[in-house]
Computed example of a mutant assay.
Amino acid sequence: MTIASHLQELRRKHEHLSDMVEREQRSPGADALRIAELKKQKLKLKEEMTRLQQA
């Protein structure tokens, strides 16, 4: 897998997590722990993308 294709996959996953966070936040009785976990996952992906772009 090339770096470019790996970055593309990471971006796709990041966007999917963004959608999930948005849906969770809009739902009544949103689970704050679930939202926090999704945000942590997004941050990890963002850090990995940044690391790969600087390589």
Rank of each mutant, 00 (worst) to 15 (best):
Arg12Glu: 09
Thr2Val: 06
Ala4Lys: 13
Leu7Val: 02
Lys44Met: 10
Glu47Lys: 10
Ile3Pro: 11
Ser18Asn: 12
Glu15Ala: 15
Leu43His: 03
Ser18Pro: 00
Arg12Gln: 10
Met20His: 06
Glu24Lys: 08
Gln53Lys: 13
Asp19Tyr: 08
Ile3Met: 14
Met20Gln: 15
Ser5Phe: 04
Leu17Val: 06
Leu43Thr: 03
Lys39Tyr: 02
Ser5Asp: 13
Ala32Asn: 08
Met49Arg: 04
Gln53Leu: 10
Met49Thr: 02
Gln8Cys: 07
Glu15Leu: 13
His14Met: 07
Glu37Val: 09
Leu52Phe: 06
Gln8His: 14
Glu47Thr: 07
Arg12Lys: 12
Gln8Lys: 15
Ala36Leu: 07
Met1Glu: 10
His14Ser: 10
Met1Lys: 12
Glu48Ala: 07
Ile3Gln: 15
Arg34Cys: 04
Gln54Val: 08
His16Gln: 14
Glu47Cys: 03
Arg11Met: 09
Ser27His: 10
Ala55Glu: 15
Leu43Trp: 01
Thr50Trp: 02
Ala30Lys: 11
Gln8Glu: 15
Leu52Lys: 02
Ala55Lys: 15
Ser5Ile: 05
Thr50Arg: 09
Lys42Ile: 00
Arg26Ala: 11
Gln8Pro: 02
Asp19Ile: 12
Glu9Ser: 09
Arg11Trp: 04
Glu37Ala: 13
Glu47Ala: 07
Ser5Trp: 03
Thr2Phe: 07
Val21Cys: 05
Gly29Phe: 02
Ile35Arg: 01
Thr50Tyr: 04
Leu33Thr: 14
Leu33Asp: 15
Ser5Thr: 13
Glu48Met: 04
Leu33Pro: 01
Ala32Tyr: 03
Ala32Ile: 08
